[in-house]
């Protein structure tokens, strides 16, 4: 089995899986119905992306494992989701900021991955990039709307940006599988996306009348290495509840 490719697919799939789960948690709680519909679209796209990557990972593993085994029967330490995707839905400002920071990252990552020499990865990326561009457009508009809206919304969105910024360092951390696979043109180095990501996010944050955090202490541990926030364990306990409780059942 190609371990690097397997791990890399998990890394890509897990972040989407966990973020889509956070969005599922928010179901029926949006500020208005239109937003409930819109955010669910994003959640469904992410879940679809997760499914594609986990399916491919299962194929690489080639021992009868399927995508559901990987999602529902894997231990926390074997997940490779980034910390940012694990952050709970503290309020709408956190939800939008988390989405915006990841959308901006994914838009760069997936456009690079559409040129991957691995056909499955490039295929998934080409399909996903259209969805991601739409997600980014939407989260960007919300950042601007909230930044320029009322004093309260400005304060809340700035606070969310400040609080979440410490997790952005992980976006540009090169995992072992990325380093190996990028040599062959299969993956892309996360560190190579940093400059453009800073451009995209700063532009929107400034347009929203907000400020880009400076002098931030970044997180020293990374989900890509299987070390997670305290939040993930609870999320998995809930998500994996049925398959763990009824190990012999098929759903």
């Amino acid at each position: 089995m190609n371990h690097n490719l397997f791990n890399y697919c998990l890394q890509l799939g897990d972040t989407s899986l966990i973020l889509s789960h956070r969005i599922a948690e928010y179901c029926s709680k949006a500020p208005h119905l239109e937003e409930d519909l819109a955010i669910t679209n994003v959640g469904l796209d992410l879940l679809g992306q997760a499914e594609s990557f986990l399916k491919y990972a299962a194929e690489i593993k080639n021992d009868g494992t399927n995508e559901d085994d990987l999602a529902y029967r894997r231990k926390e330490k074997d997940f490779k989701s980034i910390h940012l995707s694990e952050i709970p839905n503290f309020d709408f400002a956190f939800i939008i900021t988390r989405q915006f920071l990841i959308d901006a990252y994914n838009s760069l990552l997936f456009s690079k991955l559409s040129e991957s020499n691995d056909e499955t990865i490039s295929g998934i990326a080409k399909k996903s990039i259209k969805e991601i561009r739409y997600h980014l457009q939407r989260s960007k508009e919300w950042i601007i709307r909230l930044g320029q809206g009322t004093n309260e919304s400005n304060k809340r969105i700035q606070n969310a940006i400040d609080e979440l910024w410490m997790y952005t360092n992980e976006l540009f951390y090169d995992s072992e599988s990325e380093i190996e696979l990028s040599k062959e043109g299969t993956a892309t180095l996360s560190s190579a996306l940093e400059k453009e990501w800073r451009n995209i996010t700063s532009r929107t944050i400034l347009e929203a009348g907000l400020s880009v955090p400076e002098n931030i202490h970044y997180s020293l541990q990374y989900g890509k290495d299987g070390i997670h926030t305290e939040h993930l364990g609870y999320l998995l306990a809930e998500m994996q509840h049925l398959p763990l409780l009824y190990p012999d059942a098929k759903w």
């Binding site: 599922a24 179901c27 409930d36 519909l37 469904l44 879940l47 559901d68 809930e238």
Partner: peptide, 22 residues
């Protein structure tokens, strides 16, 4: 929704609840 036991089941349920919002 957050305890749907498979990815497929979760997608179907999420889309269903979204339809109801619609």
């Amino acid at each position: 929704l957050t305890r749907a036991p498979s990815i497929r089941a979760k997608k179907i349920l999420m889309a269903k609840i979204q339809d109801e919002a619609g």
